[in-house]
Amino acid sequence: SSPEYTKKIENLCAMGFDRNAVIVALSSKSWDVETATELLLSN
């Protein structure tokens, strides 16, 4: 995975989300952090 994707994963994990959930959310939202965060918060 690219450093850009890794940084997005790390940033969301730092907010307390599960790493696997973060990866699923990001990949399902075309790696857009904002919409992935909304998805994680709604679960």
Rank of each mutant, 00 (worst) to 15 (best):
S28I: 14
L12V: 01
F17Y: 06
K8V: 08
L12P: 01
T35H: 10
L39S: 11
S30P: 03
N43R: 15
T6L: 11
D32W: 00
E4N: 06
S28F: 01
E10Y: 11
V22S: 10
K7Q: 13
L39C: 11
E38S: 12
I23Y: 09
I9T: 02
S28T: 14
T37I: 09
T35E: 15
E38T: 05
D32Y: 10
M15L: 07
I23V: 13
S30Y: 06
L39W: 12
V22C: 07
W31K: 09
C13T: 15
N11I: 06
A25D: 02
Y5W: 00
L41C: 07
T37K: 15
I9A: 02
T6A: 08
E34R: 12
I9Q: 05
S27A: 12
N43H: 10
E10I: 09
S1C: 10
L41E: 15
A36K: 02
K7C: 05
F17H: 06
E38Y: 03
S27E: 15
L40P: 06
V22N: 04
A25P: 03
M15G: 02
P3A: 13
L12Y: 01
S30C: 11
G16R: 00
F17R: 03
L41T: 12
S27P: 02
L39A: 12
S42T: 11
I23W: 05
S30R: 11
A21H: 07
G16W: 00
L26F: 02
A25W: 00
S27K: 15
E4W: 03
C13A: 08
N20D: 15
V33E: 14
W31L: 03
N11C: 08
C13F: 05
K29A: 14
D18F: 01
L40Q: 03
L26Y: 01
K8M: 09
E4K: 05
T6H: 11
A21Y: 02
T37R: 15
L40N: 03
E10A: 10
K29Y: 03
N11T: 12
A25H: 04
K7L: 07
T37Y: 11
M15C: 05
L41V: 13
M15P: 00
N11E: 14
S1V: 10
L41N: 12
Y5S: 12
L41Q: 11
P3K: 08
S1P: 07
W31C: 06
V22F: 01
S30G: 14
E38N: 12
L40T: 04
Y5L: 12
P3G: 12
Y5C: 09
A21S: 11
L40R: 03
L41S: 08
K7E: 12
L26W: 00
S27M: 11
S1Q: 06
T37A: 13
V24M: 13
F17C: 05
N43K: 13
A14Y: 02
V22L: 01
L26G: 09
N20Q: 14
F17S: 05
E38M: 06
V22H: 05
Y5G: 03
T37E: 12
E4M: 06
T35R: 15
A36C: 04
A14V: 02
R19K: 10
V22Q: 09
S2E: 10
I9E: 05
N20W: 10
M15R: 07
E34Y: 02
G16C: 01
K29V: 13
A36F: 00
K8G: 03
L39F: 12
K7R: 10
L40S: 03
C13P: 02
S2Q: 04
A21R: 10
L12A: 00
R19H: 04
E38A: 13
K7W: 05
S1L: 14
S1F: 15
T37D: 04
S27W: 06
M15Y: 02
R19E: 13
R19I: 05
S2V: 06
E10C: 03
N20V: 09
K7T: 09
E34W: 03
N20H: 09
S30N: 13
A36I: 00
A25S: 06
P3V: 13
L39N: 06
S28V: 07
S27Q: 07
F17K: 03
A21L: 06
L39M: 12
D32I: 00
W31T: 10
A36M: 03
L12H: 01
I23M: 12
E10L: 04
L26I: 02
D18L: 00
D18P: 11
E10V: 03
E4P: 03
L39Y: 12
C13S: 09
E10G: 04
V24K: 15
L12Q: 03
F17P: 08
D32P: 01
A36Y: 02
A14T: 07
T37Q: 14
N20A: 13
L26V: 01
E34N: 10
A25E: 03
A36W: 00
M15T: 02
E34G: 11
T6V: 01
M15H: 03
K8Q: 10
E38D: 09
Y5V: 08
T37P: 07
R19W: 04
W31E: 08
E10K: 07
Y5N: 11
W31V: 06
E34A: 12
T35K: 15
S30Q: 15
N11A: 15
Y5P: 04
L26C: 09
C13Y: 02
L26R: 07
K7G: 04
S28W: 00
I9H: 01
V33H: 07
A21P: 04
T35C: 12
S30K: 12
V33S: 07
S30F: 04
S30I: 00
I23A: 13
V24E: 15
V33A: 10
K8L: 06
V22R: 07
N43S: 12
V22A: 13
S27L: 07
E4T: 08
S1A: 07
C13Q: 09
